[in-house]
Simulated scan of single mutants.
Amino acid sequence: MRRLGDLEAEIMDRLWRWQRPTTVREVVDDINRTRTVAYTTVMTVADILHRKGWLRRHKVGRAWAYEPVRGREDYTAGLMQDALGRSEDRQAALMRFVEHMSQEDFAALDAALRAVGREETAPAVEAGGER
Score class of each variant (00 low, 15 high):
L94I: 04
L84S: 04
G71H: 08
I48E: 11
E104L: 13
K59N: 08
F106S: 13
T40N: 07
T44W: 02
H50Y: 12
A38N: 09
R72M: 11
L79P: 01
Y66T: 01
E104V: 12
K52V: 02
A112Y: 14
R56S: 08
Q91K: 12
L79M: 14
Y39V: 03
W54N: 01
A77Y: 11
L113Y: 13
A111H: 13
G61M: 09
D110I: 02
Q91E: 09
D105C: 06
M43Q: 10
L49E: 02
L94H: 02
Q81R: 14
G78C: 07
E104N: 10
D74Y: 11
H50S: 09
G78P: 01
A112I: 10
T41M: 06
G78Y: 03
H58F: 14
R90H: 07
A65I: 04
R51H: 06
E104W: 08
A83G: 03
G53D: 05
L55N: 02
A107G: 09
A93F: 02
Q91A: 10
L55P: 02
L113H: 11
R72Y: 09
R90M: 07
E67W: 14
E73S: 11
D89N: 15
F106E: 11
R56P: 00
A92K: 13
R96C: 07
A77T: 12
F97C: 11
A92H: 08
A63D: 13
L94Y: 01
K52L: 12
K59F: 07
T44I: 03
D105W: 03
R51Q: 12
A77K: 09
W64H: 13
V69E: 12
A83K: 08
G78V: 03
R70N: 06
H100R: 14
R96P: 03
Y66P: 00
L55G: 02
A107N: 14
M80V: 12
E73L: 12
F106L: 15
K59W: 07
A77N: 07
A107F: 10
T76G: 00
G71N: 11
